[in-house]
């Protein structure tokens, strides 16, 4: 059975657990780096990226998560998670995991009062997807290997690069589990390939 881990240092990790469970897969909260051994795919949730980064450092998660991804296992970053995956962050802010070839801008749509919901078409995943953007980042540019999945107002808000999936918005805050389902499928397929 496929087990998806949700990094549970801070933020909306319980909502992701619920969303994964709604797709019929098993989900566990990951609070210790040793738990990465027990999972097939990892979700890095929304929260405060600076807070999550501090806790990643303190509990020595950075290198183990990088290795987890480099071994071919899928990682899905939402909002703060997207920032943590990016190889370049606007304003010379520290790069975190840096595993995905994307350049991001933090709080790109503005402060909380500018936060919004909107309907999006996510290529190959879902049409008319209700996306919730909260002090959200967007992707300013992607490398050649990265596929753009969705744009809002011309800005890239979802992308995939091999085993890495990222979005600016919060799929865990609605009852629409199509994007989570897409990630679970990525994990299941990787499981099959890695088993060969």
């Amino acid at each position: 059975m496929t087990t998806i881990g949700v990094l549970g240092l801070q933020g909306a990790f319980r909502e992701h657990i619920r969303s994964v469970e709604a797709t019929g897969s098993k989900a566990i909260v990951v609070k210790r780096k040793e738990q990465l051994e027990e999972i097939d795919g990892l979700i890095i949730p929304g929260g405060e990226s600076t807070t999550i980064r501090r806790l990643i450092d303190r509990y020595e998660f950075l290198e183990p998560i990088r290795q987890f991804g480099e071994s071919g296992k899928p990682i899905f970053g939402t909002c703060a998670g997207l920032i943590l995956l990016a190889s370049e962050i606007d304003g010379s802010y520290d790069v975190h995991l840096g595993v995905m070839d994307i350049k991001v801008r933090r709080n790109a749509f503005g402060r909380q009062r500018e936060s919004f919901e909107a309907s999006l078409d996510i290529e190959g995943v879902a049409d008319d997807f209700n996306a919730v953007f909260i002090r959200a980042p967007y992707i300013e540019g992607v490398g050649g290997n990265t596929k753009v999945l969705a744009r809002y107002d011309g800005h890239i808000v979802a992308a995939q690069q091999d085993q890495y999936l990222a979005c600016s918005f919060h799929p865990e805050l609605t009852d629409d589990h199509r994007l989570t389902e897409h990630f679970v499928k990525m994990v299941e397929e990787t499981n099959k390939t890695l088993a060969l």
Binding site: G8, L9, Q10, G11, A12, F13, R14, E15, G46, G47, E48, T51, C79, A80, Q112, S115, F116, E117, V132, F133, I134, R135, H170, L173
Partner: peptide, 12 residues
């Protein structure tokens, strides 16, 4: 959007 913002603060 308003409640979601508080959800992101959880555990903090």
């Amino acid at each position: 959007v308003k409640r979601g913002m508080a959800e992101m603060q959880k555990g903090g």
